[in-house]
Structure formats: structure tokens, C-alpha cells
Amino acid sequence: MHPIRVGLVGTGYAAKVRAESLQADARAQLVAVAGHTIDKARAFSETYAAQPAASWMELVNRAELDLLVIATINRDHGPIARAALQAGKHVVVEYPLALEWAEAEALVSLAHQQNKLLHVEHIELLSGIHQAVQTALAEIGTPLYVRYTNLNAQRPAPQKWTYSLDQFGFPFMGAVSRIHRLTNLFGRVATVTGQARFWHESAESDQYTSCLCTAQLRFANGLVAEVVYGKGEAIWRSARTLEIHAAEGGIFVDGEQGTLVQANQTRSLEMGSRRGLFAKDTAMVLDYLTTGAPLYVSLDASLYALKVADAIRRSAETGRTIELE
């Protein structure tokens, strides 16, 4: 059986680690790469012994490719995935699947119709941090309150697509992993209330220098979660923390350090490493395609997290609480 022949869209960090993972696995062959420009595609391809492509459309139309990996700006995920599925290719895409929930839902239906793999990367679920928290939940009883904070102070704000609403999307959709971590741990969401503020370079510019978004999620099981996401010049101190308060204890994560607190003990959690997660995701995709082994995340779970994120966006725009259940 020939190796799975892969086309890659993107030349940034995620594309680099994907290329390294594919190159290291005999079950796959990285055939061609498309970038933002042909020069970037050419330079990237030379490193990984692949062929440069003038555009992602060229990759979609190459009949010899079995799989397309999408690691480019968020805005283009949906259109590229649709074209690749329509061309009869399997698709792996970095989150989010699309910047509109309805578009993502349509792509899932298309993948089923075409009988092709559509896998959305959610490596946060593979991380040692997430798995340590998931394991420790059994020790603290019924979760009551969660506070999840992701703040990134950047001064000056970079002139990058990640600071563009058009290209990155509404922050909780572009960074939907923050929502997916919670829905994976705690289940269905009943209502959401969201707020968002952006500091733009100018009144005419889509590019912003800072954003700050908050959301309150009320889960179907009664848990209340507050989520904070912000980046840029208006943020003066970076923070990556998760607090889970429950009936019989709490879990507290600060960066890569975790602590479990109960009435009679306080102990550190073994958090493991965040290294090698793209390689693990890639290996599981190849396992699925070659042996049918199950993946670690379902399309339904990924789609549901995006639905919650979209509800936060609608709440922020309208000032209303949105009911999901």
C-alpha cells in the first residue's frame, strides 16, 4: 500500500510541525505545499523535500493527493475544507473548522456525504494539563464554579492576521479551544452571556491593537463558568489560569503548574508536557486512515464547542443572554 499522499496549506508554525510529523512517519508522504506566496511555498518545500504549489486551489485539484492538511489563517479554513471534500480528499484542519457555526455544520454534513475524514485538531485535549485536570475531577466532587483566564500582554501589538477580526474571527471562535476545554470537561451549556471590546488602529481598520472578551457560561448541570480571553497592548500582565471549585475540593492551574486542594490535603498535580502534541494528533489521523482506530475527538464535540462560541459572539453583539438548551 502506498503512503498517504498529503498536501499542506500553510507555512507557519503549525504547518512546520505538521510537516515534521509527516516526514517522520513512513505511512505518509508530504507531496506539495501552498503558502501565502509562491516564494514562501518554495522555501518551505525545499526544507521538507516537497513540491511548491502556486495556491491551495492547485492542491485541491491534484488528483494524486489523498489528504489535505489546512494550517493557514482561520478565515480560509472553511472554503478550503469545502473544496477539498468536494474533490474527494480527506481533510485535517487546525481549529476552528470555520468562522461561522452554520458553515461548520454544513462541512460536517458534506464530509458524511462524501464518506471522507474531516478531522479538526484540538490538541488541548491531548495535553498533560487537560488530562491531569480530567483525572483529578473525580477527587473533588460536584463542580460548582470555574474561572478560566487567558491573557497575553503584547506591546507593541504585532501586525499579524491574529489581530484581524476578518482573518482570525471573533476571539472565542478563533480561539475555540478555550471553550472546548470546558465543554469536554463539564458537558452541555444552557445559557451564555458575553462581552467583547476591541481597540482598533483606526476607525477604518479591521486590525486591532487589543481585544478583551469575557463570557459567563451556565452549564446544564448547574455549574457556572467565567471565561476571559484578551491580548495586545491593553493587557499589562499575561496570565493562563484555571480554577475549578467543587463540593469537596478545588483544582488550580497556573501556567504548567497544577494543585489539588482538599480539606485534609494540598498536593501538586503531575501535569506532563505540552511537547509533541501535533505529532500525536498526526499519528492518530494516520492510525485512523490506515487501521480505522478511533480519533480522540469527534466532529460533533468540535462542532458543539463552536456553537457555544458563536452564541457568545451573538450575546456580545446584542447584549442579551443566549439560551442553547
Rank of each mutant, 00 (worst) to 15 (best):
residue 292 G to Y: 03
residue 214 T to Q: 14
residue 182 L to H: 00
residue 86 Q to C: 04
residue 194 G to K: 06
residue 22 L to M: 09
residue 190 A to E: 06
residue 115 N to T: 11
residue 87 A to N: 03
residue 223 L to I: 05
residue 175 A to Q: 01
residue 261 V to C: 00
residue 21 S to L: 08
residue 37 T to C: 07
residue 187 G to K: 06
residue 157 A to E: 02
residue 262 Q to K: 12
residue 152 N to D: 11
residue 223 L to D: 07
residue 48 Y to P: 02
residue 120 V to F: 06
residue 198 F to L: 07
residue 245 H to T: 12
residue 229 Y to N: 14
residue 12 G to C: 01
residue 10 G to V: 09
residue 305 A to P: 04
residue 58 E to D: 12
residue 160 K to N: 05
residue 313 R to F: 04
residue 52 P to G: 07
residue 219 F to E: 12
residue 161 W to Q: 12
residue 318 T to K: 11
residue 118 L to G: 03
residue 281 D to R: 09
residue 226 E to H: 09
residue 45 S to R: 10
residue 89 K to V: 06
residue 64 E to R: 05
residue 9 V to A: 11
residue 154 Q to K: 08
residue 124 E to T: 05
residue 302 S to K: 02
residue 61 N to Y: 00
residue 98 A to R: 10
residue 48 Y to E: 04
residue 165 L to G: 10
residue 280 K to A: 13
residue 183 T to F: 10
residue 190 A to W: 00
residue 1 M to T: 11
residue 291 T to Y: 05
residue 82 R to E: 08
residue 184 N to M: 11
residue 142 T to F: 06
residue 99 L to A: 00
residue 98 A to P: 08
residue 45 S to A: 15
residue 110 L to A: 11
residue 103 E to A: 09
residue 72 T to Q: 12
residue 112 H to E: 15
residue 14 A to F: 07
residue 132 A to P: 09
residue 82 R to C: 01
residue 167 Q to G: 00
residue 256 E to R: 15
residue 224 V to E: 13
residue 31 V to N: 10
residue 123 I to K: 04
residue 158 P to H: 08
residue 153 A to R: 11
residue 263 A to E: 12
residue 224 V to N: 09
residue 14 A to K: 11
residue 173 M to A: 13
residue 254 D to G: 01
residue 258 G to P: 06
residue 37 T to A: 12
residue 184 N to C: 09
residue 108 V to N: 07
residue 46 E to M: 04
residue 186 F to D: 04
residue 203 A to L: 12
residue 206 D to E: 03
residue 59 L to C: 04
residue 312 I to V: 15
residue 100 E to N: 14
residue 129 I to T: 14
residue 220 A to Y: 00
residue 98 A to D: 13
